[in-house]
Design a protein around this nucleic acid. Structure first.
Lengths: 200, 200
DNA sequence: AGGAACTGTCCAGAAACTAGACATAGACTG
DNA sequence: CAGTCTATGTCTAGTTTCTGGACAGTTCCT
């Protein structure tokens, strides 16, 4: 009989993240106080610590929630081009890069002062393993189902490459989104769409 | 610091009503047990009683929630015909009657065995004061804002008449919705749209 | 009459939230 | 460089909310 309690917990977690999100995008991560989050969510500071053990954990959750939202949009982009992995990836990368440029949280992360190891940027760089693993896993599964004609090994390598390249370009763009999307899609094609990569 | 607690309470209330709704539309009000509601919502039976003091109160809340939903749709219909009260009312009544005919809860109420004084049908008939007052109040305010050129007294009378006629036709239709809507709109016009009803 | 099933009430115990105090650490200031 | 300020994270006693089992009263069925 815990189903109700779980939904209350997730309501609380969402409220806390919503509160954190609002202040982060307005003021920046370093000016965000645990007490602010608690007050904005209408809860005691202790409850924030009970739910997320630390401020850092909230940052992690904030980033991961945004990742999940991106992945939803990415899935829609991929679905728009069945049977054509290269075009699907091009569209998905383009969507990701343009959405990232407009995203309030990402803008805040990328423009805020690079403080220490516990700032939000770290979740995209030195501590990006959860992000990369979540995104890669989701896309690996997608690719396995949608593109079974590609051999598994090059397919998985291509996915990881696309994910890492895309994150890299979010953090440090080198060209406009359309150009980058083309180039990442080309990388995919070279890694996994050659004739010898076809499943026998 | 009660804002959070209130949102948890309303989450709970919604869950309970959702659970009740599902079983009422499937099985009927008389076969619905408080224990079912509790179990489906994932809480104890006591919690149901703490939130809604009785089974009857749940029935009331169930009906009133549906009324609120209807009023939302009705508002949209009215908005579609600014400056033309008669046509606005005709559209709103038509919408209400057709939506009522498709509504699972209303279908269940109107087809279930008429048990005692505590069944759901009573909330539309012998104990319909909350329904009528809620709907009339909302529409009175709407009319006062949207149709200030009608004198208050005939305007309020027309609103109450339209509300009561509509409820009456939901419970006991006498003609197809389009015919009824025309007739109710005509009643409105006769009560409140004569030249002498114009605000000086 | 007796039993079964349900509503509504009561209460002791468990779980979750609150609020205040406190240890610790880094930043700022005179 | 000592002292103050401010924040994070921990601890704990007290309150509110939910749980679950028992029970009285009612209705229906047999």
């Amino acid at each position: 009989m815990t189903e109700y309690r779980e939904s209350v917990r997730s309501l609380l977690k969402e409220r806390l993240l919503d509160a954190a999100y609002e202040r982060v995008t307005a003021d920046g991560w370093d000016r965000l106080r645990m007490a602010h989050i608690a007050a904005a969510a209408g809860v005691s500071r202790q409850t924030v610590y009970t739910e997320y053990g630390s401020k850092d954990a909230i940052g992690q959750a904030l980033v991961m929630r945004e990742v999940e939202r991106f992945l939803t949009g990415i899935g829609e982009q991929l679905d728009a081009h069945p049977e054509d992995p290269r075009e699907a990836v091009r569209a998905a990368v383009y969507f990701t890069l343009t959405a990232a440029a407009d995203n309030p949280l990402l803008k805040s992360i990328l423009t805020s002062s690079r403080g220490g190891d516990d700032d939000l940027l770290a979740h995209l760089t030195t501590r990006s393993e959860p992000l990369l693993e979540t995104a890669s896993a989701m896309l690996r599964d997608y690719a396995a189902k949608a593109w079974p004609f590609i051999a598994p090994d090059p397919r998985d390598l291509a996915i990881e490459t696309v994910v890492r390249l895309t994150v890299s370009h979010i953090v440090q763009p080198s060209a406009p989104p359309d150009v980058t999307a083309d180039r990442v899609a080309l990388a995919l094609a070279r890694i996994a769409l050659l004739p010898e990569d076809r499943e026998p």
